[in-house]
Design a protein around this nucleic acid. Structure first.
Lengths: 265, 265
DNA sequence: CGCACTCTTGAAAGTACTCAAACTTAGTGG
DNA sequence: CCACTAAGTTTGAGTACTTTCAAGAGTGCG
C-alpha cells in the first residue's frame, strides 16, 4: 500500500487517506468535508455516478460533513427524524426493520458508495435501523439541500430518481428470493450478489471476508442461522466454497450461479 | 348508487362516471383527459394527495391521456421502454417480476389512486410486468414532464420523493412478511392491509371481493395456492372470516390482527 | 350443458426449524 | 502468557410446517 496525501477535518475529526484531492477553504466558515464529491474516489459508484463533471461539481457543497460510526452503533434508528441521506464512505452497514411482533428483518447490507436513508423521506421519520457492522464513515447529505440543488439540475434530479428506482428494483429481487427460493439458492444468490458488488469496487472477488453474522445473513435471507451454516457447509462439501468462519473463498462461481438459478420446481 | 355526471373522452374512449368536474377545452388540439388532477375525485389518495390547491393545479397538464387495459392484459411488460408512470383510476393491477429461473413473484397489487411504473426509472426499461386483474383505466403521467414540472415546484418534487420512499418502505414490510411469518400470519397481514386500503377509498371494509386468484395471493405471500386455500379455510373454521370463493367477509378483524402479530417464536 | 378454470381437501413427502451440545475464535483479566 | 469468558459457528436428532401430488367440487363462460 502506498502512502497517500492525508487530509483531515478539524470538525468531524475524520482522516481521509483515500483521495488525492485536498479540501478547499471553507466558505463563510461553514464546515466543509475533506473531499468534495467531484474529487472523491468513490464518485463512480456513489451518488454522482455517471454524472457530467459539471453536475458533479455542483454537488460539492452538498455533502455537509462526515460522520463516523463505530461497529454495532446505529447511524440512525427507527423513529429518528429524517433530515439527510448517507453515503457510505468506508465500512459496512445493515438496515433492519422491526415488525409489530418484535421480529427483526434485515432489509439490506450497504458497502462503500451505497446510499442509506431513503426510508425516512415518506414520513419524515426513519422507518428502519441502520447499524454499522464495522467502524465506518459516511458522508452526510442534507436532503432539503439535495432537493434544492436538484431543482436547478435536471441531471442531478434524474439521478436521485434513478437511485430510488434501483432501490425499489433491488427489493423486488429480494422478494423473488424470499418468495420462492430454497435455502441454498438464497445463499448462492446472496454470495453472487456480494461478489458482484465487491468486484465493482475493485476487489478480486474470489475471496471475501463477511462482515455479518450467520444470524444476520439468515435474517436477510429469511432463514435461521443454523440453516445458513448448513448451507455453507454443503457448499464447502461440494467444492463450491472454502469456508472458515467469515472467510469465504469462492472456488466454483459457475456452480454457485447454477445453484442460484436451478429452480427444481 | 346515484347517477353522476358522465364525461367521455373521444380519443381514449373512456367514460368517467366518478367525477363531477367536466373536462376543460383541450388547448392547441392536445388530447386532454376528461378530468384534470385538480378536479379528480381520487386527488386525496393519488399522486396529488396533500398538495396545495396551487400545486395540484400545476399538475393538470401533466396527465397526458388515459389508457384502458382489459382484464389480464399488460399495462407494461419487462423490457418495455420506460416513459411514464401510471396512476390507477379504476380497476386493479398486479406487478410481478420473473426470476432467472423463470419463477414468477407478484411484488404488489395496485388499486385506484396507486401509482405504477417506478421500476423503470433506473434503467429506462421496465423491470417487471404490470397486469390488469380486471378491466381498468389508468392516467398516463409522462415522466420527463413530471420531472420538468417538479423542478419548478418544491412541493411536487418532494411529493415524488415521498411516494417513492413509501414504496421502498412498503417493500420492507413485504420483506418482513416473507422473511419470518407463518402462512396464516402472512394471509392475515395481507387481508388487514387490503382492508385498510379499501377503507381509505370509502369502502366499509367488512366485506370484499378479491380480484386475484389464490395462486396470485400465494405468489405475493411466498406460499403455494393450496396453502393459501387452507389458511382461508382455517380462518373460516375459526370464525374470523366467511369465505365463498373470492368473496370474503371479515367477521373478527381484531382476531385477524392478533393472528398477524402473534409471533409464536 | 359442458368445458375450462379455480378452489378445496386429503395424504405423503420434503424442507427448514427447534433444541441441544460441542467447538472455534477473539477479547479480558489474572 | 494463559486461562477464562462470551459470542459466534457447526453439527445432530427430532419436530413442525409447507409443499407436492392427487382427486373432487364449485363457478362461469361459450
Amino acid at each position: 500500500m502506498q502512502p497517500a496525501p492525508i487530509t483531515s477535518c478539524s470538525i468531524c475529526r475524520t482522516v481521509d487517506r483515500l483521495s488525492s484531492v485536498a479540501a478547499e477553504a471553507p466558505p463563510d466558515g461553514a464546515h466543509r468535508p475533506p473531499v468534495a464529491c467531484s474529487g472523491c474516489n468513490l464518485r463512480e459508484i456513489c451518488l454522482p455516478f455517471g454524472l457530467s463533471a459539471e453536475a458533479r461539481e455542483r454537488m460539492d457543497p452538498l455533502v455537509g460533513r462526515r460522520r463516523s460510526v463505530r461497529r454495532l452503533e446505529p447511524l440512525y434508528r427507527t423513529g429518528d427524524p429524517f433530515s439527510s441521506l448517507y453515503a457510505v464512505r468506508t465500512g459496512f452497514f445493515k438496515t433492519c426493520v422491526t415488525g409489530a411482533s418484535g421480529r427483526d428483518q434485515v432489509t439490506g447490507f450497504q458497502m462503500a458508495g451505497e446510499l442509506l436513508g431513503f426510508d425516512g423521506i415518506g414520513t419524515a421519520l426513519h422507518t428502519c435501523d441502520a447499524i454499522a457492522l464495522e467502524d465506518s464513515q459516511v458522508c452526510v447529505i442534507w436532503f432539503d439541500q439535495l432537493e434544492t440543488l436538484s431543482r436547478d439540475s435536471a441531471e442531478l434530479q434524474h439521478q436521485i430518481h434513478k437511485i430510488m428506482s434501483r432501490e425499489i428494483v433491488r427489493e423486488h429481487g429480494v422478494m423473488l428470493l424470499l418468495g420462492g427460493m430454497r435455502a441454498e439458492e438464497r445463499l448462492a444468490s446472496f454470495l453472487v450478489n456480494l461478489l458482484h458488488r465487491l468486484r465493482l469496487r475493485g476487489f478480486s472477488g474470489s475471496s471475501m471476508l463477511l462482515r455479518m453474522t450467520r444470524e444476520e445473513i439468515g435474517s436477510y435471507l429469511g432463514l435461521k442461522l443454523e440453516t445458513v451454516s448448513r448451507s455453507f457447509s454443503k457448499f464447502q462439501d461440494d467444492g463450491l466454497l472454502e469456508v472458515r468462519q467469515r472467510n469465504v473463498r469462492v472456488l466454483d462461481e459457475a456452480a454457485l450461479r447454477r445453484v442460484m438459478h436451478d429452480a427444481t420446481s
